[in-house]
Lab assay of single mutants.
Amino acid sequence: TTLHFDLDGKKLQYTGVSEEIARLVEELKRRGVDLKEIVRILEELLK
Rank of each mutant, 00 (worst) to 15 (best):
Arg30Met: 13
Phe5Val: 04
Glu37Pro: 02
Ser18His: 05
Phe5Tyr: 02
Glu27Lys: 12
Glu43His: 05
Gly16Trp: 05
Leu3Trp: 01
Arg31Glu: 10
Glu44Cys: 09
Phe5Gln: 01
Asp6Gln: 06
Asp8Leu: 03
Arg30Phe: 14
Ile38Thr: 04
Leu42Thr: 04
Lys10Val: 13
Val25Trp: 02
Ile38Pro: 00
Arg23His: 12
Lys29Glu: 08
Asp6Val: 09
Phe5His: 00
Leu3Thr: 01
Gly9Ile: 01
Gly9Pro: 01
Lys36Glu: 09
Arg40Ile: 07
Arg31Pro: 01
His4Arg: 05
Glu20Ser: 11
Gly9Val: 01
Lys36Ile: 11
Leu46Lys: 03
Gln13Met: 15
Thr1Gly: 10
Arg30Asp: 07
Val39Phe: 03
Leu28Asn: 03
Glu20Tyr: 09
Val33Tyr: 13
Gln13Glu: 14
Asp6His: 15
Ile41Pro: 00
Leu46Asn: 03
Leu7Pro: 00
Lys11Gln: 15
His4Val: 14
Leu7Asn: 03
Asp8Ile: 01
Leu28Gly: 02
Leu46Glu: 02
Lys10Asp: 08
Arg30His: 10
Ile41Thr: 12
Lys36Cys: 05
Leu24His: 15
Thr15Gly: 06
Leu24Val: 11
Ser18Arg: 06
Leu12His: 06
Lys11Thr: 12
Arg40Leu: 08
Val33Trp: 14
Leu28Ala: 05
Asp34Glu: 13
Ile38His: 00
Asp6Asn: 07
Leu45Trp: 08
Ser18Cys: 02
Lys29Pro: 02
Asp34Ala: 13
Arg31Val: 08
Gln13Trp: 11
Glu26Met: 15
Val17Lys: 01
Ser18Gln: 05
Lys47Met: 13
Gly32Ala: 12
Arg31Gly: 09
Ile21Asn: 11
Glu37His: 07
Thr2Gln: 05
Gln13Ile: 14
Leu46Ala: 03
Leu28Met: 14
Glu44Val: 11
Arg40Gly: 10
Asp34Cys: 10
Leu45Val: 08
His4Tyr: 13
Lys29Thr: 13
Leu35Asn: 09
Ala22Lys: 05
Glu26Gln: 15
Glu19Gln: 13
Leu42Asn: 00
Ile38Gln: 06
Glu26Ser: 12
Arg30Lys: 09
Val33Leu: 10
Glu20Lys: 09
Gly9Asp: 06
Ala22His: 07
Lys10His: 11
Leu46Pro: 02
Lys47Gln: 12
Ala22Gln: 07
Glu19Met: 13
